[in-house]
Amino acid sequence: MFDTQSYLRVLTSINAALTTLLGSVGIFVSLTVQRRVERLQDILEEFLDLSYQSDTNITGKMYKLIEKYQMHYLFPDTPGRLIVQYINLTIAVVIISWVSILTIGFQWTFKVSLASILFYILPIFMGLGILVFYRYLLKNTIYPFGNYLMSPLIPPPVMLRSVSFLSGYVNVSVKSIMKQARLRLLIKPHNSDKAKVVLKEELSFDDYFYYLFIAREDKPVFIGYGDLRISFDNESITGKPIPAAKNVNIPLGYIPFNSLKHDDYDANFFIFPKGEKHPLEYLFKLKKQGNIYAITEDPESSVNYMITYHIDKDRFRVLEENTGIPFFHMLTKNTILNSGRYACNEPFKPENAYNCAEDVYID
């Protein structure tokens, strides 16, 4: 049999070796993350450089860059699980070693005080807390998707479709980004009584407050507003999140057929990202073609400097507005950004607004 001192020395050496290996795993993960961050930053820079080429249709290239960004962003499942399991096992063995060393060396007497017990036990709890926090850091580094630890350093792939993030975090032009979305507006039959207003995006960009009114000779027939945020289900085969999509259709609301009495309408679409103070305005010319209303030419887009706004957390607030947008103040004065798409038909009152809960779809 081994004597007690020899056994304690063996346990101590095992404990030291395991903690050293745990630190080595942390160095390995940090080096892997460093290389990944460098690659992701290169892809992000390339994505932003493409956004300024607004005169050509490069949405396909931007979509491929977003997919490429996600490929480098996500850590492979099997190696990630093995590393986390190794960390869990190492921490468990280290804790058992600590407890064994103290248990073997502890001699119970009636004179043992609470202070002396805490003196021996407290380091174990402090060390356990540090190891658990160390595990938390490594796990969030391996799986950065959906946690707030790595997001400031390497933003999730879904943030590359967020207009508010791109304009506020990296200060890119909203107009140049939305140019690549190739916005289109469409009014098509929904059922026997109503037509559906659909915003079409060639490349899905979201995370902005919008205000839309469709009018004929300055008389609105439809008003829509809300916080546009798109969510996609995970891929059915791989189970990984979908960062962006092409040819997205966003239902904005419904218009009764008896309100559509003319063959052409004007539509003004305002985009309010969080990182800006002046909205982007689109002017659509809608013309009846068969049983649908569609645009006949590319929309005009410009920054509307007559409107100044501020978005504080989830509250939308207009600071100055000198353009006389129909019903704008009345419908948006108490708006809270809650991912809802609201619409209103005549009479245009806040109590008549309804939430368009129809899901975004791809065609």
Rank of each mutant, 00 (worst) to 15 (best):
A294K: 15
K139R: 15
S116G: 02
S54K: 12
F269T: 01
Y120D: 09
G340E: 14
V94C: 07
Y210P: 06
V25M: 10
D233Y: 14
I187T: 02
A343R: 07
V33R: 10
R216H: 14
S116H: 11
R216G: 02
I325V: 15
D233C: 12
D55T: 11
L331I: 01
K285G: 08
F209K: 01
T78F: 11
G224I: 04
F47Q: 03
W108N: 12
M1G: 14
A92G: 08
T141E: 05
D207F: 06
P79W: 02
K61C: 06
Q85A: 14
R35Q: 14
A115W: 10
Y210G: 05
N355Q: 08
V84E: 03
I187C: 00
F75C: 09
N334V: 06
Q41C: 04
T12R: 13
L65W: 00
V303F: 02
G23R: 06
V99C: 12
T19Y: 04
P273D: 00
P251I: 09
I87H: 04
G80H: 04
I43F: 03
T141V: 07
G290L: 01
N334C: 05
I124P: 04
F257T: 05
A244F: 09
E297F: 03
W98K: 11
G129T: 05
I101D: 06
S167R: 08
F28R: 00
L102A: 09
N171I: 12
S173V: 07
L82D: 00
N338W: 11
